[in-house]
Amino acid sequence: MPDRNRPVLDFLATRRSTPPKLLTAPAPDRAELTELLTLAARVPDHGMLTPWRFLVLDAAALRHLGAEIARIGAAEGLESERVAKAGAIYATSPLAVAVICAPKASEKAPEIEQSLSAGAVCLELLHAAHAAGWSAGWVTGWAAHDRRFLPALLDLAETESIAGLIHIGTGPIPADRPRPDVAALTSWRRE
């Protein structure tokens, strides 16, 4: 029987995300965030391609993005309530890390594996932030995937996309929410 790391298991069993609208300053400083990013980079990465990169957004950059989402949405004639909700994600958070999926040409690692590696970076960054005592939430929204909005505002290459926006700061730990029924979602196959 393997040795169980009870503190890590307890951490994973009790981890909670904090919505960006509840996050306030302070946020990690550059040295603290560098440590978190270093931990987040320890993910499965078939072929060691590093098919992702980080873009750190401070409070001013986040407010700018929110204002630009509102401006572009109005110019495009999109539903104002939808646009306002998308921009509100950036209204109070003191810091966010955009994890940019940047797939590389590879015969060994299909693009889907590279995208999943970028998603794993998002989760590892969330775990690292929580383990370091920060509150954090992974909230991305439709504007991150609409090429007219965040991909254009953040100057992403045509082959790049936003895997996730991890907001980090100080905030409450929300009450637990209902979790999936794992037994109902699991099948077992034996041959």
Results as ranks from 00 to 15, higher is better:
D176P: 03
E81V: 00
I166H: 02
A132I: 07
I112Y: 12
P178M: 04
I173L: 09
A70H: 11
R177I: 12
L125T: 01
L116C: 12
C101D: 12
S117N: 12
S80K: 13
E81I: 00
L165S: 08
D181E: 13
A184I: 03
G119L: 01
E113W: 14
A175T: 14
E160G: 13
I72E: 15
L125S: 03
I168F: 07
I166Q: 01
P178Y: 01
H130R: 15
A105H: 13
S117A: 15
V121R: 03
R148L: 10
D176M: 01
R71C: 00
E107I: 04
T186R: 15
C122I: 05
L165P: 13
L153A: 12
G77Y: 10
I166E: 05
A131Q: 08
V139G: 01
S135I: 03
A102T: 12
S115P: 00
A86E: 13
I72N: 09
C122Y: 04
P103Q: 04
D155W: 01
Q114K: 11
T140S: 11
L65N: 12
H130W: 13
A136N: 06
L150P: 03
W134F: 11
L65S: 05
T92Q: 15
I112F: 13
A163D: 01
E158H: 10
A70Y: 05
C101I: 01
P180I: 14
L116S: 05
A75R: 15
A88L: 07
E160M: 13
G77Q: 05
G77R: 11
R179Q: 15
A129V: 02
G171P: 06
L78V: 04
A74T: 15
I173K: 12
L95Y: 00
L153K: 09
A143N: 14
Q114Y: 06
E79Y: 14
E68F: 08
Y90L: 01
D181R: 11
D155F: 01
E79F: 14
R177M: 10
D181V: 07
L150W: 09
E111S: 03
P94V: 02
A144I: 06
R71M: 00
A70E: 15
A120C: 08
T186V: 08
R71N: 05
